[in-house]
């Protein structure tokens, strides 16, 4: 996405008072308990092992660390991750 479009989106969101995940292509991360993580609007898997999963997002990456990580299901706009999640970090 081009920089101008992103800025336009950001201003539109502020002006209309909308949650940012509706219009902009930013990830929306939802965590249920300690073992389930749902990421919407991801851009694909960058790295995958049972102790670490890296997801691509519009800005940077989402790094999930833990044990016995499993991708329960993966769709173009949504990914469900399960396992003992220890840490989630947003990296550039």
């Amino acid at each position: 996405m081009r920089k101008g479009t992103v800025n336009f989106h950001r201003r539109l969101i502020q002006w209309l008072d909308l949650p940012p995940d509706v219009t902009a292509n930013v990830p929306r991360i939802q965590m249920v308990g300690f073992s389930q993580l749902i990421v919407e609007n991801h851009q694909g898997v960058d790295f995958f092992s049972d102790s670490e999963i890296r997801l691509k997002a519009d800005r940077g990456k989402i790094r999930i660390q833990g044990e016995n990580l499993v991708i329960r299901s993966i769709f173009p706009e949504e990914i469900w991750i399960e396992g003992n999640i220890v840490e989630m970090r947003l990296v550039d």
């Binding site: 694909g44 898997v45 995958f48 049972d50 299901s73 993966i74 769709f75 173009p76």
Partner: peptide, 12 residues
């Protein structure tokens, strides 16, 4: 994923 193939239970 881009081809909309639903993959599930991906174990490393």
């Amino acid at each position: 994923m881009r081809e909309e193939i639903v993959l599930g239970d991906i174990h490393f």
